[in-house]
Amino acid sequence: MSRKRSLVSLLTAFSFLVLSVTGVLAFVRPFSIQIVGLHALIGFVFIGLIVLHVVNNNGHLGRYLKRGPVRMSLGAVVVLAGLFFWQPSPIKSVLGLSKNIGPSLDAYEIDELGMSYRYAPDPGYQMALTVRSGSGFDTEAPPHFAIWLENASHYHIKTLHTPPGEEGRTALPYWDFKLRGWEKAKREAEKSGTALADEAGIDAISGPTQNSSFDPGDYILPGNAEESLPYRLLLEINQPGDEQASLVYAVEIDNIDPRTFQLLDLVGYPKREEDDDDGKEVWSLYYIDESFGSALDLIDSALLTIERGE
């Protein structure tokens, strides 16, 4: 009996070691069927061994359940499981570090080559934005970036990358203005129970054009591709200390006419207008003028790649 218990315990310990090593490798390395396969199969063996281990030690386990800190243990596991399942921002950040799990979420990286951003909300939709740095790109103090999506009426529908801190928001006023407008409309819509499209005051001038959805899913993963709505991906960039306004680049994405590769075009620079009649702050984009110098060399190119599944 004692020999059998020892065998089960040792098998459990060794298989746990394999499970741990393959788990870490699966996290830090790109996807590998050998690693993930080994991890999964040894996991099944481990489950069987655990069952035997519980059978061998049911007396001890029974005493733990009667006298041990059961509630605290159960609570801790439930909290961790909940966090890992819902994945709030800090958890997402940790998962984003993974070379394997990260691509299924979003990942932002900046280095001497420029900036790369990946967003893959679904296996059938994998977006990558690759910004190649230009001569004006300072790798020591890299520029602030914001990336977001807008619908055909130029209303913000989803921010993909937020610049860190208040400094980032100030440096990228156009994105900030769009985001604040969306947040305000969303708050008011929630309060009044109306549709966000009504709250945002979608104009009806171009009536026949569909432009009212605020659900990113309607654009990124439409139920019916034939009825999908075009949308835009925008990038705002600002190099700290260059004393020039931020620049906004954009590209239109149309799932009816899907393109894997698209280059972003420079649209303009933001300028604050006079507040509107309701005292609301208004920012508009203006065409680039002769006041811009090095800012125009921040980006050599900005390439959007979208891999769509079948």
């Binding site: 009426s153 130029h154 001038i205 171009s206 649209v267 508009s284 984009l285 203006y286 065409y287």
Partner: peptide, 9 residues
């Protein structure tokens, strides 16, 4: 005309 129109019209 120096302002980028949000919509063509």
């Amino acid at each position: 005309f120096s302002k980028v129109p949000q919509r063509h019209w």
